[in-house]
Computed example of a mutant assay.
Amino acid sequence: MTYTSPKLLTFEEFIAQYGDNTRYELIDGQLRDMEPTGPHEAVAGSIAGRIYVEIFNSNFNWLVPKTCLIKPPAAEATALRPDVIVLDKAELSKEPLWQKEPIICNGSTIKLVAEVVSTAVASSRETRPTRCLTNWQDDYARKVEEYAFLNIPEYWIVDFSGLGGLQFIGNPKQPTFTVCQLVNGVYQQQQYRLGNTISSKLLPNLQLKLDDIMHI
């Protein structure tokens, strides 16, 4: 990715200035303006809704907050904002920031995260974005490492437009739903294409295909 002389932000600065703005997250002090499109939000909403139905039907003590930030303990200037996140209600009492801010610090509180791959821009407080980017680099690489380090059981990468690099989704590029399941601290990845039924160990009764959530 290319950035134009960005001014690095601390976690505290980010929260003070952008914590309530759902289009921004922070990675290594660099502000990410996610600029969510209508199709992106429609896909994220469909996923959240289907997960909520499974939680309700299975009577899990989990919740799907409207907005939430993750503060990885090993990354001081990072605040991740997943498109969809599932939290364990029983663990929220152990979260140091939750009562004042929708911020999660402990990986044990998180059951699942989902990222919807879309276009995005790199930005800073002092310089306007100059180049349009895709966020697949973060979703397929950096966040795989961060979420595995937090021991999050499942991570979904929903690439409904086939934007990911060839090394991640193959050639030719096509819409891809990747389910990352944590095994001994490492994500084992299974990819699903249009027409495939998606399998989730966390939600074993889930009936879902990528076709069901396509809103392009």
Rank of each mutant, 00 (worst) to 15 (best):
F56D: 13
S161F: 10
G107Y: 08
F177I: 06
I157A: 04
S161K: 15
V84I: 13
D83E: 12
S93L: 12
P72Q: 10
L63T: 13
I152A: 02
Q137W: 07
N106H: 15
I55C: 09
K94R: 15
A79M: 14
A114T: 10
C180F: 00
Q181P: 00
L194P: 04
A114V: 13
S124T: 06
T176R: 04
P102R: 05
K71A: 15
V64K: 02
Q181V: 07
G164N: 08
T127A: 12
V179G: 10
V144L: 05
E154F: 01
Y192L: 02
V179S: 11
A79S: 09
A77Y: 06
S123Y: 00
D159M: 03
E95M: 07
L150C: 04
V117Y: 00
Q174P: 00
P65F: 02
L194M: 14
L69H: 15
S118C: 04
P172R: 08
L69W: 10
N59P: 05
I169T: 09
P73D: 11
P129K: 07
I103E: 04
T127M: 11
G107Q: 07
T78F: 05
V158R: 01
A141C: 11
C68N: 15
I103Q: 04
N135W: 08
I103G: 02
R193I: 06
E54K: 04
E54H: 03
W98Q: 03
V158A: 07
E91H: 07
I70K: 02
V116D: 04
T119W: 14
A122P: 00
S118I: 00
T67G: 12
W136N: 13
N61A: 09
L97F: 14
T119D: 13
E101P: 01
D83I: 11
A90Q: 14
T67I: 10
V121Q: 12
K66L: 14
E95I: 10
L63Q: 12
A114Y: 02
S108C: 07
R193S: 08
I152E: 05
N59A: 09
T119N: 14
E101R: 13
E146Q: 11
N106R: 14
A120M: 15
Q188D: 15
I152C: 03
C132P: 05
A77C: 06
R128D: 12
A75R: 15
E145P: 01
V86W: 04
A120K: 06
Q99K: 12
V64I: 12
V121P: 01
P96E: 08
Y140M: 05
Q188I: 10
S58D: 11
K173A: 15
T130G: 14
I110F: 00
C180E: 04
